[in-house]
Design a protein around this nucleic acid. Structure first.
Length: 482
RNA sequence: GCCCCCAUCGUCCAGCGGCCUAGGACUCCGCCCUUUCAAGGCGGCAACGGGGAUUCGAAUUCCCCUGGGGGCACCA
């Protein structure tokens, strides 16, 4: 049977990095097995679901390259892939389960339930509701009135046990004494997650459910439900959760949990995919930088780590730098340009584009995040309007500052062939003439041109800037020095 | 409180009874390269949570403890 997996986010928030990782694992498993990757929207929580969240999830899934074969927007043989469009189906299943005796209308009040759980806790027994509080049939109408309507609960067989083999945890066993007679239909006649999710998994022919460990203990419910529907339960794989730097569940307080934040910070999707893929999974060898194709080739469902993984933003950044350096120069220039233009607040002219491209390889190797490009490239398009205070006092307002600037003007005026090599030779000649160290002699020029002591290599920058602009900026700085 | 899962450097992984004086990567610290900053090269710090048991031999198997995580909703 061909593999069918799904990612089923709830549009109640932006695409979370943890969800993205789960999606990636599903995607890898599908591709590895020539299976089908499905994206479905679990939007039964109408109150908290929004179109904006849904769109954010879709956008970032695509941005990461996690294209789905069936599901939202791309369609497939199972309708809209939105749970909110399938309420009739869930009701149908719920009624069938009531008829077959696998589920029942429940009239317990929340007060009764609270009391039940409280007593269980005091007694040290299982707090799982076992249906024992249901009123006698003759009392139902009144209770129903008090209650605002019944819910439908699944009747968990007791005593009993559900065992299954989890692809990452191995044999797992749950005593039904620990499993609630859980609600499958709310009193407002809408389905709960357990019902909707399981019905969809069954109807869509999902073969492997790869999801977060947070639902491991709900798995018996889903298996019981599937069996009651007469279906063969899927295989399950429960991934350990992503943690923040303090070992607690990754949350906004640790930094960014929304995928969009990483995109906005200038991460490359390839780097994110690589990093997320190796967070809790090993491709087999001591490898760290692994491309998608390799991951797909190796991802057979084994080698998935059982322990929680801490999300290390620093390592992600390092990896992003690796991917940036691996890009070819033209591609990097193209990818970076929007960042530069956003910073400038305007589009680049054709000439400026050439200028940018000329210096790009040098910028590329000192960039970890795309968002760092504007700081490095700005001097190409705008003369410094101010100078970094420390830079000015440290290298400019010194004995050597004026000497270096004056020397540079003279040396540069003598350059006929405006090339990096000629500029290099001329400025080094200037160094000798004035007996300046490279540091003393070159840093003032750098500050004059860029406003700071940190910038791309000097000679190339001068070449790209052009003679007029270079001399003009030096003159401005020199005047300020006088 | 009850149930479940987990446990190797600070972090992510490798290790599946002898190849382990425990390997790789990030971080950090040196050194080299160097006009700044990076990148790169070389080197270094750093771990099998504790206790039993099995075995000729355990990071690797079993048990207990401890620690961490998750769940216990008419949320997903």
């Amino acid at each position: 049977m061909s593999v069918r997996v799904r990612i089923a986010p709830s549009p109640t928030g932006y695409l979370h990095v943890g969800t993205a990782r789960t999606a990636l694992f599903n995607y890898l498993f599908a591709r590895h097995n020539d299976g089908t990757f499905i994206l479905r929207s679990d939007d039964t929580d109408q109150a908290r679901s929004t179109d904006e969240f849904k769109q954010d999830i879709l956008d970032h899934m695509r941005w990461l390259g996690l294209e789905w074969d069936e599901g939202i927007e791309v369609g497939g043989p199972h309708g809209s892939y939105r749970q909110s469009d399938r309420y009739d189906r869930y009701r149908e299943v719920a009624m069938q389960l009531v008829e077959s005796g696998d589920a029942y209308f429940s009239f317990v009040t929340s007060e009764q339930l609270d009391d039940f759980k409280k007593k269980a806790r005091e007694a040290g027994t299982s707090p799982a509701y076992d249906g024992s509080l249901e009123p006698a049939r003759s009392e139902v109408p009144r209770a129903m009135l008090d209650n605002g309507g019944p819910v439908i609960r699944f009747k968990v067989p007791r005593p009993g046990t559900t065992r299954f083999t989890d692809m990452v945890r191995g044999e797992v066993e749950f005593d039904h004494a620990q499993v609630d007679d859980f609600v499958i239909m709310r009193s407002d006649n809408t389905p709960t997650y357990h019902l909707a999710s399981t019905v969809d998994d069954v109807d869509y022919g999902i073969t492997h459910v790869i999801r977060g460990e947070d639902i491991l203990s709900s798995t018996p419910k889903h298996i019981l439900l599937a069996k009651a529907m007469g279906a063969e339960p899927a295989e399950y794989a429960h991934l350990s959760l992503l943690m923040g730097p303090d070992g607690k569940k990754l949350s906004k307080r640790h930094g960014d949990t929304a995928m969009s934040a990483y995109r906005d910070a200038g991460h490359l999707p390839e780097a994110l995919v690589n990093y997320l893929g190796l967070l809790g999974w090993s491709p087999g060898e001591d490898e760290t930088v692994v491309d998608l194709a390799t991951m797909i080739a190796r991802f057979d469902g084994t080698g998935i780590s059982k322990n929680p993984a801490i999300f290390d933003a620093t390592k992600l950044e390092w990896m992003n730098g690796v991917y940036i350096r691996e890009m070819d120069a033209a591609e990097f220039a193209e990818t970076s340009r929007p960042w530069v233009e956003a910073d400038l607040g305007r589009s680049l002219t054709d000439d400026e584009r050439s200028t940018l491209e000329a210096l790009m390889p040098l910028i590329q190797e000192r960039t970890k995040l795309l968002s760092e490009v504007p700081d490095q490239a700005r001097f190409l398009f705008e003369a410094p309007t101010e100078y970094d205070d420390k830079a000015w006092s440290k290298v400019m307002a010194t004995d050597e500052g004026p000497v270096a600037l004056d020397g540079a003007v003279e040396a540069l005026n003598g350059v006929d062939d405006w090339s990096t090599e000629a500029i290099d030779a001329a400025l080094r000649g200037m160094l000798e003439e004035h007996e300046l160290s490279a540091r003393k002699g070159f840093q003032p020029i750098r500050v004059a041109l860029t406003g700071t002591t940190v910038s791309p290599p000097l000679f190339e920058s001068i070449e790209v800037l052009g003679r007029d602009e270079t001399l003009s900026r030096i003159a401005v700085a020199r005047a300020r020095l006088a």
